[in-house]
Nucleic acid binder design. Structure first.
Lengths: 198, 198
DNA sequence: GTCGAGAAACGGCCCGTTTCGTTTCGCCGC
DNA sequence: GCGGCGAAACGAAACGGGCCGTTTCTCGAC
């Protein structure tokens, strides 16, 4: 998995030190966890990893690329499949909020979104990632559609976008501790609007 | 000695607080528009406003405070009242997207959200502002509720939060050019889920 | 005289790049 | 297999430049 060509990373004829790369990614995560986004700098990561700045710049063209790889290194959020749309979406949001709360992922993703507001390459990477997630999460809706739980004409990607929007805003405004009842209400408002005839 | 002989353009008259404050806010908006969030610094604003940095720091404790005041100085987005919930929400989102696209407000708000991810005071200010907007936008839903268009038990603030989430994510991922048909679909998914018995 | 203003300079941090000498690794001839 | 060579990655240090937030100074209006 690690010898693939990463966007923005050399892969041809490059001999990178895997230990060094791991140390840098570990350090990046640690710095972000301990000092937050405001304390997250290439210099700080290099110090922490006992690495040289040029080594970091050689493999990651920007802070955004480093952040993105740290985020993607983390575990994936479990996508439930209970046979019921409301339960699937509530479960997914619950898993996502807990994951963001209890690991460094929340802070990493927050930082990535923030970075994307001033760095064009970060914006592109984030848009691409968000697009992928949108179609991925959309499968929850597609499954419900196949069960007849959701009307056939419904735009799954759009529904997934709405769900993700809710998650993003809560992440960005420090409201990841929403209780399940509230999440369920929000999900219900959505699912009832797209219900099928079944 | 000093640069007494500037390209003469302004009387030697002392600029008291209001004039200076306006000049600084104008400069902040201009810098943000021309250089973006990455080029937005207190020094750049001071240069542009021909003001001293201490003057800025005297009135605004942080970049976030300056951003927030610039944003609130802008025109308010018109909140339609057509007597129909779907039209109200579609109109509101259309107005908001256009406002964010066609004025500097979009970039200002983006910057504010980004700033809030690394500056605690910005986060607090933004949370407070978002809360106010939530109840404000919630009035659209409250009016629909009064008309019986929305079920009585519906949480207006939560619906407003969902609507705002959609707007935020589109702002933060550079998708403010969504066409009205898509916006209408999103709104419809929501409004149909909260419809009343009428 | 007082007060708020702008200018300038402060130490400090970080940026992204360059240079340095060293270490590691791939390859090729043996 | 073995050994050596060169390319490439490495850590460290230093570069010019920018911004941070603060301090000091001088000036002009009241």
């Amino acid at each position: 998995m690690s010898e693939q060509a990463h966007p923005g990373r050399r892969s041809i004829g490059a001999r990178r030190n895997p230990d060094s790369a791991d140390a840098i990614l570990d350090a990046a995560e640690a710095v972000l966890t301990e000092a937050g986004y405001s304390g997250f700098s290439i210099e700080a990561v290099a110090r922490r990893a006992r690495a040289g700045k040029p080594t970091i710049y050689r493999w990651w063209p920007s802070k955004a690329a480093l952040l993105l790889e740290v985020y993607q290194r983390g575990k994936r959020v479990a996508v439930p499949d209970t046979g019921n749309l409301e339960e699937d979406l509530v479960g997914f949001l619950n898993n996502l909020f807990r994951h963001w709360r209890e690991t460094s992922s929340g802070n990493v993703f927050r930082s990535l979104v923030a970075e994307a507001q001033s760095d064009e390459t970060a914006a592109v990477a984030l848009a691409s990632y968000a697009g992928g997630r949108r179609s991925h999460t959309g499968q929850i809706i597609e499954r419900a559609k196949a069960r007849g739980e959701v009307a056939a004409g419904i735009d799954s990607a759009l529904v997934a976008d709405l769900v993700a929007s809710y998650a993003w805003k809560h992440l960005l405004t420090n409201r990841l501790d929403e209780d399940e009842a509230t999440i369920r209400k929000a999900v219900r408002y959505l699912t009832q609007g797209i219900a099928g005839a079944r």
